[in-house]
Computed example of a mutant assay.
Amino acid sequence: MDFTSLREAFPLIAGRPGLVYLDSAATSQKPKRVLEALDRYYKELNANVHRGAYRLSVAATEAYEEARRRIARFLGAEEREIIFVRNTTEAMNLVAYAWGLRNLKEGDEILVTEMEHHAGLVPWHLVAGLTGARIRAIPLTEEGRLDLSALDTLLTERVKVVSVVHMSNVLGTINPVAEIAKKAKEVGALVVVDGAQSAPHLPVNVKALGADFFALSGHKMLGPTGAGVLWGRYEVLEGMGPFLGGGEMIREVHVDRSTYAPPPQRFEAGT
């Protein structure tokens, strides 16, 4: 690998010869081609997507939907299952509120792990406080891996959702999501995967993982900030209400009521 040319591909790093950047787990640097693509969009294609019949808006909309198609291919998913959000945190909150708040009740359990990022814990704390559900965790071994032997005890019919990080941002541990998902399905639990760290580093096929939701952030995988993705199994998305209300996510609006667009537009309110 030619590290000199690799450094030159990243303007921030190229401009600082002594810089060694080791914080990509928090946010990655942006290569020149990404910065050029952003610049080109604002210079040549900037218009509000899905909001106009004029040529520029149609072209911007096509570029937007092409991005959705590319993400779908990247994750082994269907286009209609790809929801654009700001980041993994928003994606996890979307699931917790739009699904959890409407489906969890007192006596239900939410199973997480002891290595979750705050985005995989706090949304469930908030929803548990509103619904009366209880949060339990899969413990860690001394080697920093999940103690899967505890699953047989933890996974009961009270567990309605299992929220698990695919790759730990602290330990680097890669969790056996497919194995966990298979056991979760045996008790009828929904499976939510925080893929913020795994999507930049591993081949990901969401259907093969057996999950119901998978979240990622663009800014951790060479993309811009403010761009993230939630993949959701369409059958689950279809049964969920909106997370945010506003433009774009509606079918009809009256003074006293509204009806909502189908997924994914249902979950993409505003510009």
Rank of each mutant, 00 (worst) to 15 (best):
I250H: 12
G245F: 08
L244C: 04
A25I: 09
A261V: 03
R51E: 14
E235W: 10
G218T: 01
M221G: 09
G18K: 10
K207I: 09
G107A: 15
K182S: 13
E114R: 14
E157L: 04
T225N: 11
A269L: 07
V236D: 00
H166E: 03
A181E: 01
A63T: 06
S149P: 01
A189Q: 02
G100Y: 02
S5A: 15
V192R: 01
S258P: 03
M249D: 15
L171I: 09
Y42L: 11
I138P: 13
E235T: 15
G245H: 07
V122A: 14
A63G: 04
R251L: 12
F213W: 02
S28V: 04
E90H: 10
N93M: 12
R233F: 01
R145C: 08
L75V: 08
A227I: 12
K30M: 15
A133K: 00
G245V: 09
H254Q: 07
V177S: 00
R86V: 13
A47D: 14
R136V: 11
G18H: 09
Y42R: 06
N103S: 07
A178R: 10
M1C: 12
G172R: 08
H50T: 06
R80C: 11
L6A: 10
L154C: 12
I250N: 14
K185C: 06
S163T: 03
V192M: 04
S217V: 01
V204G: 01
A133N: 02
D2N: 14
V165P: 00
K207H: 12
V177G: 00
A96N: 05
V122G: 06
L130Y: 04
F214R: 01
A96M: 09
G76P: 08
A37W: 02
P203T: 07
L35I: 07
A47C: 06
R80G: 11
L121V: 12
R233M: 02
L202P: 03
V95I: 12
A178F: 01
E106V: 04
E114G: 05
E44R: 11
V49G: 07
